[in-house]
């Protein structure tokens, strides 16, 4: 008797691709992803189609109402609000992912190492993490930026420093669950060392957790960058940065609300779309 052809238990399409397909069929995900990617494209390419130079002042037409020439009107210096809106995306679109990446790398490494080894290191590190988590992130950031002086690098490190403990705790929980699985024991049975265990055995299995955590952190990062620049601790004048523009536009809100509204709506659209994408990713990959 010849060997029976083994039935393919599962279709050849990898699971993650099926899941991505299912995600894209959900409007909340696909629309949010479209908005998010739209802002990324704008941040990279606004120079190609921006109607006016964002810094070009026009002394004769301050506070211009939205019109055909100025789609979203002009600000107190007569600068085109629409052009500044497009240009203002750059800082947040660069800073927020940078923060997220730093927080993910630091937090994941901490979570992987403490979760895998456990013991005294785990207890010590996790107490520090808990302590950091109890302090309001925004106060810490303001403090650090004031003491260290503001720069993009400090901004990224300060916010990422606040996020990393949160990432570490989530990743650690996931590592603790994986560590109990038989495949980890199987690797011990061939005397694998810690670095291999963490990097090759466990990391691939906690990757979904890390990626979803990243998406969630990205939403908070956008918000944190906007908040700090609103407080004047981000990019300085004459940058078209959204948070800065909102804070400066407050005083003109009675007569020229468009100055403040345009970047506010932009921030909201970005935060909401990032959060929705993160939510859907979490629902699909972690539950």
């Amino acid at each position: 008797m010849t060997a029976v052809a083994a039935p393919t238990l599962f279709p050849a399409v990898p699971a993650w691709r099926q899941r991505l397909g299912a995600l894209l069929r959900r409007p909340a995900f696909s629309i949010s992803l479209f908005v998010l990617l739209g802002w990324v494209v704008v941040a990279v390419s606004w120079r190609l189609y921006v109607p006016y130079a964002p810094d070009a002042t026009n002394a004769v037409a301050p506070f211009g109402t939205p019109s055909g020439a100025h789609l979203l009107g002009t600000d107190w210096l007569g600068r085109d609000v629409f052009s500044r809106l497009l240009a203002g995306s750059t800082s947040v679109i660069i800073l927020a992912p940078a923060i997220t990446v730093v927080a993910l790398v630091v937090g994941s490494l901490t979570g992987l190492v403490t979760g895998y080894y456990g013991g005294i290191v785990d207890v010590g590190v996790m107490r520090v993490v808990d302590a950091v988590n109890t302090m309001p992130g925004i106060v810490l950031s303001v403090l650090a930026l004031t003491v260290l002086g503001r720069s993009d690098l400090v901004l990224v490190l300060v916010i990422a420093g606040g996020f990393a403990p949160l990432v570490a705790r989530t990743v650690r929980a996931s590592v603790l669950a994986e560590r109990e699985r038989d495949y980890v024991d199987a690797a011990r049975l061939r005397q694998e060392k810690g670095a291999y265990m963490i990097g090759v055995e466990i990391l691939p299995n906690v990757m979904p957790t890390i990626l979803v955590e990243g998406a969630i952190r990205l939403g908070y990062a956008v918000f944190a960058v906007a908040t700090l620049s609103f407080l004047g601790l981000g990019p300085q004048q004459p940058s078209p940065d959204w948070g800065l523009t909102v804070s400066l536009g407050v005083q003109y809100v009675q007569n020229a609300p468009w100055i403040l509204l345009a970047p506010s709506v932009a921030i909201a659209s970005l935060v909401i779309s990032v959060n929705l994408v993160a939510d859907e990713l979490r629902r699909e990959f972690l539950h």
Partner: peptide, 16 residues
């Protein structure tokens, strides 16, 4: 001296 572990579902690393 080797061991065959109990749970076929978790004894192999799902990513390998």
């Amino acid at each position: 001296l080797q061991l065959v572990l109990q749970h076929p579902d978790t004894t192999l690393n799902p990513r390998h």
